[in-house]
Simulated assay, not measured.
Amino acid sequence: MAGQKSVEALGQAKQFMYRQARLLDRRRYEFHFEQGSPEQVIAALRAYQNEDGGFGQALEPDIRCPHSQPVPVEMALRLMDEVSYVDSTIMEGIGRYLRGITRPAGGFPLATLAVNDYPHAPWWYREEDQLPSLNPTGNIIGLLYKLSAQHSFKEEEWFQSSVEYMWRQLDELNPYDYHDIVQAATFLEHAPDSERVQEYRVWLDELIKRPGIIELDPQAEGYVHKVLDWAPAPDHSVAKLVTAEDISRHLDHLLTEQQADGGWPIRWEAVSPACELEWRGSITIDRLLTLRAYGRLGSSASE
Rank of each mutant, 00 (worst) to 15 (best):
K146C: 13
L23E: 06
E82T: 15
P109E: 14
S272C: 07
Q219D: 12
D81L: 14
D180A: 05
G95Y: 09
G53Y: 02
A270S: 07
P61Y: 02
T112C: 08
S302W: 15
M1K: 13
G222I: 08
V238S: 00
G142H: 07
V163Y: 10
I283R: 14
A184L: 03
T102N: 13
A13Q: 05
S282V: 11
L98Q: 04
V202F: 03
Y48D: 14
E60G: 01
S299Y: 07
I90G: 00
P66Q: 05
A301V: 13
P132L: 08
Y18L: 15
Q35R: 12
R201K: 05
Q160R: 13
S194W: 12
Y165W: 05
V238I: 02
D235L: 00
K240N: 03
R168W: 10
H179Q: 08
D52S: 04
A239D: 01
L288T: 01
F187K: 12
R27Q: 11
Q15C: 11
D205K: 08
Q15N: 13
N139P: 15
L251T: 03
V224T: 15
Y145W: 15
N174S: 13
I208K: 05
V163I: 11
L170A: 07
A114V: 09
P109L: 12
M80T: 03
L77K: 05
R78M: 14
M80F: 08
E82W: 15
N50A: 04
I63T: 13
W230D: 00
A293L: 12
C65F: 03
Y18S: 12
E60P: 01
A274D: 06
E215Y: 08
V271W: 02
W230G: 00
G281S: 12
Q130R: 13
A76S: 09
P61A: 03
P175C: 00
F31Q: 05
W167R: 11
R22M: 03
E278R: 01
T256L: 00
Q20D: 02
R267G: 07
G281N: 10
L113K: 01
V227E: 10
V71A: 06
C275T: 09
T89K: 14
T137S: 11
E303N: 10
R280Q: 01
E278N: 02
F159D: 10
I42R: 06
E39Q: 11
E92F: 14
E215M: 03
